[in-house]
Design a protein around this nucleic acid. Structure first.
Lengths: 189, 189
DNA sequence: TGATGGGCTGAACATTCGTATGGTGACCGA
DNA sequence: TCGGTCACCATACGAATGTTCAGCCCATCA
């Protein structure tokens, strides 16, 4: 997944994967059959991970729990990097996840604001902007001088996002949870 | 450039480029030498184009001129798609452009708001979010049901951006120009 | 009219890639 | 102990790719 994320699927070779995993190229074939199947396996792994984190974090209201935040910061980075690349490389699974995020956001916006506004466009743009930071994480990290996926970088970017986006579009509840969560993390160091 | 943008540099073949241009593979080599040199030529072309458009549009205050907007909408899309891919594929030129945009945005923010806020992080995130829409244009278009680079799609996305981002961070002047420009375009149809 | 030179072509080459195949040794149940 | 299954490896093969090169076409010009 790390190699796919860094180089793209096409530029990543089975032999390179095997070398990074310290096994023979034949073993990769033995386990996954084809390169495309391996890519799908990565897709499914990321998707199941993200679904679980959304359930635990958002649905179960753990967004401000330090142990949840710490766990995410420890496990998510490589998966997020892969997701970012998959969105650009044209993975069907990543496209489906994008659409799902847009629909979730759209319902959120429509609930909070019953006007005639273009909720679909707002939800789409909001989703693309958030994921855009993930896709461009390399450039964000360089411009910041700090790894986006290190605690410092994540907090700076998170706060900047909260500053830039009108609060009502994040959902008041999520907004407050995210802010207090960020402040807790910041207070720890 | 279109092929590089759609498939990525690694997945694009010289033969594919030659076929699309209806010439022989040898001719591509004859003109550009190597694939890497061709890619650099694309980078430089996009960069010079963007610099010129920024000069004409922002510096010369033409952001609300219909002829400027129309010209951009007609010529920019393939270039923007290439830029989006170049940012992910690791082109040095695209990275430099990203940094330049961040610096420009940062000065803008610092001028408008002299507080102790983290202008660097805000400028970086703002740049990444805007470019994120370009990078993810395929997904944005699909979610919208309209091509992002068709006039309708561009207007919807532009207005959604203006709605989502706190106006003060776009610069009051740019904000007003962009809004009136969008409304003019919208009024034309 | 004949020579020249650059734009352009098609074939060829070395390399790399994904994939298929045969084989080896460890482990496990009968 | 035996037979078989499974993880694993080394090798090989066909296809595709970047690149090289010898030569063709044709406009230009003396």
């Amino acid at each position: 997944m790390a190699l796919f994320a860094e180089q793209g699927v096409k530029a990543t070779t089975i032999r390179g994967i095997a070398e990074a995993a310290k096994v023979s190229p034949g073993l990769v074939q033995h386990h996954f059959g084809t390169k495309e199947a391996l890519r799908q396996a990565c897709d499914e792994y990321v998707l199941s991970y993200l679904r679980e984190q959304v359930t635990v974090g958002v649905t179960d209201h753990n967004l401000d729990k330090p142990e949840f935040i710490e766990n995410v910061h420890r496990t998510a980075p490589p998966l997020m990097k892969y997701l970012g690349r998959a969105l650009v490389d044209g993975s069907p699974a990543a496209a489906a996840m994008f659409d799902e995020l847009v629909s979730m956001t759209e319902e959120h916006l429509a609930d909070d604001d019953r006007s005639e506004a273009d909720h679909r466009a707002r939800a789409t743009v909001l989703t693309a902007m958030k994921l855009g930071i993930t896709v461009l994480h390399e450039h964000v990290s360089r411009a910041l001088g700090t790894d986006l996926y290190a605690p410092q970088g994540a907090v700076r970017v998170g706060k900047a996002q909260l500053d830039l986006i009108r609060p009502e579009f994040l959902g008041r509840e999520l907004f407050d949870q995210a802010r207090t969560g960020l402040e807790k993390v910041e207070g720890q160091r």
